[in-house]
Amino acid sequence: MHKKLRIKIFEKASLCRHFETNAYKFSEKKLIKIPIYLSAGQEFISASLATIINDICKIKPLIFAQHRCHSTYLSFGGKIDNLIAELLGNYKLSNTKGMGGSASIYSKKINMFGHDGHMGTQVPIGVGACFTSKKPTIVFMGDASAEEDYVLGALGWAATKKLPILFIVEDNNLSILTEKKVRRNWNMHDVAKSFKMKGYELNDSPSEIIKYQKFFFKEPMLLNINTNRMFWHSGAGKDSDQIFDRYLNEKKILGKEAEKIDKKFNSTIKKKWEKHLEKL
């Protein structure tokens, strides 16, 4: 993978990481008063996909996601100020005037549709939007949402209709804290294949994700991307200090340039949060 591209992806991931670490901090200090679902640890999925789809392919897809979608919103070009406002309860500045919270992010600007709070509903809804509009559509879900019966029904229909849709399973192996192996003995990429669509299992390394670019939006495809959640299911807390951190790993591989980016975002994002906090 070309280093320039990898740096570009790292740049998006860095924005997401620093956004989430600040959200963590202010949630811990009770300055964020609503439930938050942090995506730190999983940010390379959105950062890689957004770089490939928006920046390289020049496609602006319809985006359907659910909770833990801050990185999706930020990577695909959502305004950082609006999301800070949403989380801090700044009614006027938030995209949804306080209706969306952390789990139901909506942005007309980036074609990101809100979520109703029922896990996995974004899958059939995204399939319906794709079927009607015929626009390239990307649907994010977690490994737990993927188990919803209506998700499976929608995947089958998308495959039958050969829609230009990309299903991404952000598989952190946990439903709150219940591991996947306790919940099921099957894999989503196998399910996708059984529906006669392309289905693959991979890790969240940008160099892995980019391999599948050639299939994007040509036909239905599902990528089950194994990743790690750095923080609790909801709120500010850590399940463990032993979790593999893709961000630190990439920073180490990319060296000084990545360190410079990390420092830049550390400072700029912090300032943005502080500016919003002053207004409270």
Partner: peptide, 25 residues
């Protein structure tokens, strides 16, 4: 005239997605 599969719950969602695209289904 769109024939849906027999997946009732998913089908309600598919129609909802269609409506989001201003189709008035």
């Amino acid at each position: 005239m769109i024939e849906l599969s027999m997946a009732d719950v998913a089908s309600g969602g598919i129609v909802t997605g269609s409506a989001l695209m201003n189709e008035k289904p």
